[in-house]
Amino acid sequence: MPEMIVCFKEVVDERELKVNPKTQELMTEGITRKISDFDLNAIEEAIRIKEMHGGRATGVIVGLPECKPSIKKALSMGLDRACLLSDPAFAGSDTLTVAAILAAAIRKLGPFDMILCGEASTDGFSAQLGPSLAERLDLPQITAASQVTIEGNQVVAERSLDDGIEVVEASFPVLLSVTKEINKPRLATLKQILAASKKEVLEWKAADLGLSTDAVGLQGSPIVLKRVAAFRMERKNIRLEGTLAEAAERAIRELLREGVL
């Protein structure tokens, strides 16, 4: 009966992003917010494990107080309880500090067997949080898991890597990050939505976690986000000139730079 922690994040719906045509800045205000895509897979996987092996799944989220509807959605899907880590002091946290906040909360929640994360978020998409959290809590990690089975007190997972599939095993406690191929997240029924209102939501601030406000947020983060510039939403219309071989090479390099290959 594994005790599970699911880390999930709230993000803006990237399909609704708009660009301020004057400043070229990305406008994220007033846009629908949602649970980051792969985190739905992490939540779903925890619920499936629970359905097969019992246990409990607690959702943990570092986010704004306004992320309550996302928490409710996660609870409606089937998480047993949630823990919202929210404090104005957390603003501007990078991976290192978000992991520190999550680690403090997870320790406070008590012993666990598994932590599930999404492989990467839909906004930052750095795929860093899982490994950073595993390091903080001194856990083995299985990233990019596309299939997970529980055998007694160990996890067997298929990892989807660049060059093939790797099947790995690790004993509890362990951290996994999951890909979107792992499952199809369920949709909650109305009854489940209504029942979610009765589930427990813990709310902790920096002080509750014993974290000094200097160690978190902008002050505590080694990475500083200076600017987010929108790409022009219009097509770029760049002609790749030169000989065939040159044009082809430039094409491949540009596509790699864009991160689309």
Binding site: K68, P69, K72, K73, S76, L187, A188, L194
Partner: peptide, 13 residues
């Protein structure tokens, strides 16, 4: 809030 969440679920479906 429940109705909004329900709408979102039905829309997704």
């Amino acid at each position: 809030e429940d109705q909004e969440l329900f709408r979102q679920m039905v829309r997704e479906f």
